[in-house]
Amino acid sequence: MFDTTSSLPPMPGVGYKPQHYSAIRDDPAPVGWLEVHAENYMGDGGRPLAQLRALSERFPISVHGVGLSIGGPDRLDPDHLARLKHLVGWLNPASFSEHLAWSTHDSAFLNDLLPLPYTPDTLARVCDHIDEVQEALGRRMLLENPSSYLAFAESKLDETGFLQEIARRTGCGLLLDVNNVFVSATNLGYSPQDYIAGFPMAAVGEIHLAGHDEDHDDFGAPLLIDSHGREVAEPVWALLDMVLDRAGPLPLLIEWDNDVPDWPVLAAEAERAARALTRVAA
């Protein structure tokens, strides 16, 4: 139905932060593409749009939405979908992705990625929403696996099976966030290696990597928080190798959204991602 290959290159990318504009313009290596949050570029004009236009002339851009609320029971906000269509229309990004999560409830946007139960009902709801998005944008989207701090007792399907079925029914691709896999597996007591082994790699068009914080729940069990505020943890790099062994080279994104470091720190993370890619390409 839609073009099925992501046109992001199998190289390291970074989540774009305006404070890195000059550094990226002067010497982006080893970064080969950039990701932006869709909602930050929905203003009427000014510096954000001017920077994005300039960057898009040099780099493939991935537009990553955080506001569609694809996993929620409410209908998709038609105004927001129209804004997204406008952005994707003028920018023509290499990729568009969103989350298996919800963020809007009764027209209130909660600015967080919130979880849903995995049941036949929610599966049908998510597929309807993805059909609507892909129809509106006229392109295939990628759907990202969430980070979870709890589970719904009513869930009937496991997450990999849920995502696989969504991809099968809608034709969408998947964005595999390896940090989210490690965070969720640790928090909910399953094996991240089993999750990776069961993930439908053929549908994966992009990988996310980020740092997390450590906390504990009421019973003293580890509770990892998907904070995007530090370096990628060692067990996540090890899982990445496992992903790349299965899937081959893919676009790898370093996300760092809080306590954003100076460019050299972020570039060093991208260097490490480049080495992980070189290993499987060799």
């Binding site: 909660l110 967080d112 919130l114 701090y149 007792a153 007591g189 019973f219 069990a221």
Partner: peptide, 28 residues
């Protein structure tokens, strides 16, 4: 109806979401 993935009540795990929402909006 919310658990830690192994049948025990979610407890403060739910507060992570509650806290994320309040912090994200306050920081904005």
């Amino acid at each position: 109806g919310l658990t830690d993935g192994e049948g025990r009540p979610a407890g403060r795990r739910y507060d992570v979401y509650r806290n994320n929402v309040a912090v994200a909006l306050r920081e904005a």
